[in-house]
């Protein structure tokens, strides 16, 4: 699992590739910890190379989205792989995460 984080024009670009499962989720959580503390941060996620996301990792993403929204920021998924999109659709989270 690989995470890249960069900032461009006040937008934080977060891309995750590989799999977010029980083993890699704690690493992911640690990496995005600083984002949780940022105020009014706009985060865009590229999940096009993410092949699997577990329910625990989803929970982490939802927590991140809620925290960002509470502080005036946002979290959107700009690109997503078909398998992860299927999971987001099934859980009804597509509408929350994905920008039209």
């Amino acid at each position: 699992m690989k995470i890249t984080l960069e900032e461009q024009n006040d937008v934080i670009l977060l891309s995750v590739s590989g799999e977010l499962d029980a083993d890699t989720c704690p690493v992911f959580q640690k990496e995005i910890e600083p984002l949780m503390e940022r105020k009014a941060a706009k985060v865009e996620m590229d999940l096009s190379k993410l092949t699997y996301i577990s329910s625990k990792a989803l929970r982490v993403l939802i927590s991140l989205m809620q925290r960002l929204m509470d502080s005036g920021g946002s979290l959107t998924v700009t690109k997503v792989s078909p398998s992860v999109l299927d999971i987001l659709d099934m859980t009804g989270l597509s509408r929350s995460f994905i920008k039209d």
């Binding site: 939802i62 659709d89 099934m90 859980t91 009804g92 989270l93 597509s94 509408r95 929350s96």
Partner: peptide
């Protein structure tokens, strides 16, 4: 259904409208 896995019925998947998992909104 609230974000749950697809239920099997009569040998195939039940038509389930994907609704938001509980506890978000």
């Amino acid at each position: 259904n609230a974000g749950h896995t697809r239920t099997l019925f009569d040998g195939d998947f039940l038509a389930q409208d994907p609704q938001l998992i509980v506890g978000i909104d």
